[in-house]
Nucleic acid binder design. Structure first.
Lengths: 217, 217
DNA sequence: AGGAATTGTTTGAGCGTTCATTCAAACTTT
DNA sequence: AAAGTTTGAATGAACGCTCAAACAATTCCT
């Protein structure tokens, strides 16, 4: 009964430590990248600023991500992952009624986790280079599709006719994107709370027959 | 009767030729900057790419703009100037009726002159660095304020109550910003024409009592 | 179990490149 | 001749990436 071939699962801790360490380092570096983008902007984010932020050497960033571009791509993927986790969690927490699910999904866009000033700085920094970095566009399209499908699905429960539901979903999605721009460009004039309020007002207008969105007034 | 102090206006053409030349060069360099941003992105736009695009030497760009940053700032101001000229011209061309003026102002946002794929690439490239370049934010706030005032003014003619008018103006402004984002991120799924159509649909919903916006169904 | 060998990780100096800016000299217009 | 304009080589700083060497964890061998 000697030891097995360190293969699948039986062994005690054959390489687990190293794998764990690698994942931890990658997370640490991605986190440092996001911090650096917030602090210095994407244009002035270098391997040096990331390494300094992470408390590591420049070399280790290249070791785990091959290239600076790989690190940036991982960072963009990460914020989209967080964004998706945010609205999915909001949907899970919402009740079964379509009105509640719609509000949950849209409200999620105005949680500081995804639209704080720092978060917006990162979003727009990456979008600014979307046209010159093919991968960014693919990531954006991938994540956006899932959210829009969810949104349209809910709208279909609220209005009759697929065309009208799609139209409504497009309006609401557009509103969210547009309000993010306000939050980003003019943060002193618009906060997430204002966004939620404006959203409710718009919903009350667009779906007047649904009492759930009726304005106080 | 010796020569005067080259001062105000009396002299025949004391420096006029040179001034004209300087303005022409500045325009040429700003144009080349915008082209370079479209072609290479803002991050890879250098004095060399701008000079090559303009058919001039690098030195002349510095001569007229002192610094690369000065050149970029001038380019941003230029696209905002064009944007403003676009919606102001649309307003001037529209009739006196508030419905027509509203549609003219909003439709102007979907003219290729300001929202073509190339134009959007420039907009988002600059916005991406807004948080790290104070001047960009000032320029954006300056131009945005004038447009929003115009929009709100028209909305006040259409709905009673300043609060409701302001709310409507915010919704519509947000819609325009949001749709630009769709045009930019997913140009294969959304074109300016779709934006105009969606806008009309939204207007018909938000202002149902105004026949001018009634949907054809 | 204990020490050597192997494999994985981290460092930071160094390389080649690119970039913004400078500037003396050449060229043009007044 | 004077003033204005344009050039492009030179400068120095910053950057992404490489790599040999150092360090650490794990495995192998007895």
């Amino acid at each position: 009964m000697s030891e097995m071939r360190t293969g699948q699962s039986g062994s005690q801790r054959p390489r687990k430590e190293r794998k764990t360490n690698a994942d931890m380092r990658r997370r640490q570096l991605v986190e440092a990248t996001l911090s650096s983008i917030v602090r210095h902007g994407l244009a002035r984010t270098t391997l040096a600023t990331v390494a300094r932020e992470a408390g590591l050497s420049q070399g280790v960033a290249v070791f785990y991500f091959e290239t600076k571009q790989g690190l940036l791509t991982a960072a963009l993927r990460e914020i989209y992952r967080r964004y998706e986790a945010n609205w999915m969690a909001a949907l899970d927490a919402a009740g079964p009624r379509a009105e509640d699910r719609l509000l949950a999904l849209l409200d999620a866009d105005f949680r500081p986790e995804v639209c704080s000033r720092d978060a917006l700085a990162v979003w727009y920094a990456f979008w600014g280079e979307l046209k010159t970095t093919e991968t960014y566009a693919e990531i954006a399209a991938d994540f956006d599709a899932r959210r829009f499908d969810a949104l349209r699905g809910i709208c279909r429960e609220l209005v009759s006719g697929d065309a009208d539901a799609g139209e409504l979903a497009e309006w609401l999605d557009t509103f969210c994107d547009g309000y993010w721009q306000k939050l980003y460009l003019f943060p002193s004039a618009h906060g997430p709370e204002d966004g939620r309020r404006a959203l409710r007002g718009l919903l009350a207008r667009l779906l007047p027959d649904r009492g759930a969105f009726a304005a106080r007034d």
